[in-house]
């Protein structure tokens, strides 16, 4: 599939990323070039091929349900831009 235009504003919104007009222009062009390069992948027939998402077998591992050491509350909040009453503070949501 050849991509001749890309709704970069939409992609940036999905990524929760503000872009300046300059960035939109430059990156729009660069992304199209990069997507064009991805066309190389079409030269490889993968109809009967399984995807590899992980190279090692990954299983969920459950630990025993016993209390262990964890990060103290204060340390967990130490890097927070804003905190209040032991919580992360953010602008109002509703």
């Amino acid at each position: 599939m050849t991509v001749d235009r890309l709704d970069i504003e939409h992609v940036a919104h999905l990524a929760r990323l503000d872009l300046t007009d300059g960035e939109r222009a430059t990156m729009g062009t660069q992304l199209l070039q990069i997507l064009d390069y991805f066309e190389l992948l079409r030269q490889f027939d993968t109809d009967e091929i399984e995807a590899t998402f992980q190279v090692v077998p990954v299983f969920n591992r459950m630990r025993d349900d016993v209390e262990g050491l964890c990060l103290p509350h204060q340390e967990a909040l130490a890097n927070a831009p804003q905190s209040e009453e032991g919580c992360f503070r953010v602008p109002r949501i509703l």
Partner: peptide, 17 residues
């Protein structure tokens, strides 16, 4: 994210998204 990420990170986040 606009202020914190540099151009290459933005590029890759956009490609990946």
């Amino acid at each position: 994210r606009h202020a914190g990420f540099g151009p290459e990170v933005k590029r890759r986040v956009l490609i990946g998204t």
